[in-house]
Amino acid sequence: MTSQELRVSKIERGTVIDHIPGGQALNVLAILGIDGREGDVVSIGMNVPSDRLGRKDVVKVEDRELSQSEVDVLSLIAPEASINIIKNFDVVEKHRVERPERVSGVLQCSNHNCITTEGEPVDSEFEVLDDGIRCVYCDTIIRDDITAHILA
């Protein structure tokens, strides 16, 4: 184990999200709906030197696996990220995120008059464009920082 890896302690069970662009770790936590008040055990490495990214962030969450919706949205802000599932201190599963054609849930449409913001029994859903996302209900395109639209 190198000294760099030691910066963030090993976990027994949970998920390690690696190769997040430097500075995006807190947005990743927001996508996972983690604000610290629920008691999740989380370790964060920020701006860790990386061969691939220059600087990367790493997030380790104990006793937690990610839903497909969370991984999909994560891929929009961290297209190079890898997801490692840990059991008994070992990586039992590892995969890179893929840019999906659609993302659902997690994000809220920026159009306040969109039907998905009105308590109807549907999740938000967006088509993923080259340079943004588009609500499949009201057609609104979000091109700015999508992390500003994470559902509380």
Binding site: N111, N113, C114, I115, T116, E118, E120, Y137, C138, D139
Partner: peptide, 9 residues
């Protein structure tokens, strides 16, 4: 309906 996307939903 007054909300955008209502018919689609």
């Amino acid at each position: 309906h007054p909300s955008e996307g209502a018919a689609q939903m």
